[in-house]
């Protein structure tokens, strides 16, 4: 279970958000641009250090003090793909695979190979597997980033605008693939976006955020029928 209370001062306002996530739960972090969605994810992931609060994942304290990145059993898909440009697609996907991968401890070489083959096939990486990462297109880079993040089978995924800049078809396809893996791997997931259509497909529950605060928490239809703020009402209409 993830319990995150993140306090982070920003120029215009202070982000102060508490989120709890059960195993295999999927939560949308929904709100207008610059509401603090990325700050929350980035603080949980450890890319930024919060100014206060507490983050605990399955009994392991991630903050405070900030746990080093390599000890955080979670995956973070940033808005940018951030592939390692000097490595091939395959090397990118397998970058974090070792005995310490959270969901792969005790996996045999055979199981590992099957898992990689599955990633490769479902995300259609076969044709570009040996291509340098700096040479792949935007849509392909997204698949590679997704595969690299999932390869270690982390118990928690943090997705920051996971499908921005992708077309509708590819988005639907990737959402479908993610949900399929969610059924077998049972990871918990937080997805942040300012577009509700994608988030609705991915997450049954939503936390709405405005100027650094959670203004409403519930199921999508509750928010749509009884939006807590005018901004939310406009975003969901």
């Amino acid at each position: 279970m993830l319990k995150a209370h993140v306090v982070k001062r920003r120029r215009e306002f202070t982000v102060d958000v508490t989120l709890t996530l059960e195993r295999a739960e999927r939560l949308a972090l929904f709100g207008p641009s610059a509401a603090g969605k990325s700050t929350v994810l980035s603080c949980i992931a450890g890319f930024e250090t919060p100014d206060g609060g507490e983050i605990v994942l399955d009994g392991q304290v991630l903050f405070p003090p900030p746990a080093p990145l390599y000890r955080r059993p979670l995956a973070y898909l940033t808005q940018k793909d951030l592939l390692f440009p000097h490595l091939t697609v395959g090397q990118n996907v397998c970058f974090g695979l070792n005995g310490r991968s959270p969901g792969l401890s005790g996996a045999s070489a055979d199981e590992l190979a099957r898992w990689i083959a599955e990633l490769k096939e479902k995300l259609k990486l076969e044709p570009i597997w040996n291509v340098p990462a700096r040479a792949v297109s935007g849509g392909q880079a997204r698949r590679v980033a997704l595969a690299r993040m999932l390869a270690r089978r982390p118990p928690v995924l943090l997705l920051d605008e996971p499908f921005a800049s992708l077309d509708k078809n590819l988005t639907l396809e990737l959402v479908e693939t993610l949900l399929e893996w969610h059924r077998t791997l049972a990871f918990a997931l937080i997805a942040a976006d300012h577009r509700s259509d994608v988030l609705k497909l991915l997450c049954p529950k939503v936390a709405a955020i405005e100027r650094g605060r959670i203004v409403q928490l519930g199921r999508w239809e509750e928010l749509k029928n009884f939006p807590a703020t005018p901004v939310l009402a406009r975003l969901l209409s």
Binding site: A45, G46, F47, P68, L69, Y70, R72, L74, A75, Y76, T78, K80, L82, F84, F95, G96, N98, R100, S101, R148, R152
Partner: peptide, 14 residues
């Protein structure tokens, strides 16, 4: 810097 942080989250020590 973010590339190094991604590598860190993928379990790599400094």
């Amino acid at each position: 810097r973010e590339l190094e942080m991604v590598a860190g989250l993928l379990g790599q020590r400094p």
